[in-house]
Design a protein around this nucleic acid. Structure first.
Lengths: 114, 114
DNA sequence: TTGACATATATAGATATCCTATATATTATA
DNA sequence: TATAATATATAGGATATCTATATATGTCAA
């Protein structure tokens, strides 16, 4: 991550599920897409992503299948499940509650005077 | 924390520094104030707070002094240093960048359709 | 007056998240 | 033909926060 990593935790799962809520993707693609959409703020590491994908699959939030690309390279695609969508919804609600609470402490939407 | 704890990390330091940016406080008071300001979203545990305060003091972001209350109970007050204020400013900027990046991925300020 | 609960601080050990480092293999480019 | 980019994977370590536990005082009700 480019962003101060001590400000995170747990949101990676939400972001991955959000991407897959739109379309099936393979791991490497998720890393690039996250980086692109966040203007390079998120530079998710492969060593973070792959174990996370395995965990989410084990928890039945994702399923995977292999597909061969034009260049004969085999890619492992992930697809979100109903259970995964439910979890995403909960995570988004949690995220909203969390940012609201932080902003309440910091003193309003604009964070008050800098 | 009442909020899904896997959505946090590192923000505790920012919140503590923010409280102390306003006035000197003792540990137990911070726990109560954080809970109050966030509508009970943050219920910081003593086991989280005290070691964190010791760490921040060691890093010269805070200094502490003891004071005896009316009821003869001794409290340990913390005061933010110039270094601490500088760190708070950086944390706030980091938090802003982080939430912006998340919202970019989630699809806009309102998170798009629920 | 004693027991329970709130106040107040502290440390040890467990858990979860994310990182770096490393490994493997293919494809594209210089 | 060497190097970088693509693509997935695991091991081991760092860090943040938690639970559990310990200690001690103040307050209030039975």
């Amino acid at each position: 991550m480019t962003i101060d990593k001590s400000l995170l935790t747990g949101s990676t799962t939400m972001l991955i599920l959000k991407l897959l809520d739109e379309t099936d993707m393979y791991g490497y693609q998720m890393i690039e897409e996250l980086s692109k959409r966040s203007n390079n703020a998120f530079e998710l590491k492969a060593g973070t992503l792959y174990p996370l994908l395995h965990t989410l699959e084990r928890k039945n939030m994702l399923i995977s299948y292999e597909e061969t690309a034009d260049n004969a390279r085999v890619r492992k695609y992930y697809s979100i499940t109903t259970n995964g969508r439910k979890h995403l919804k909960e995570k988004k609600e949690g995220w909203k509650a969390y940012t609201t609470a932080i902003d309440d402490v910091l003193g309003g939407a604009g964070f008050g005077p800098a």
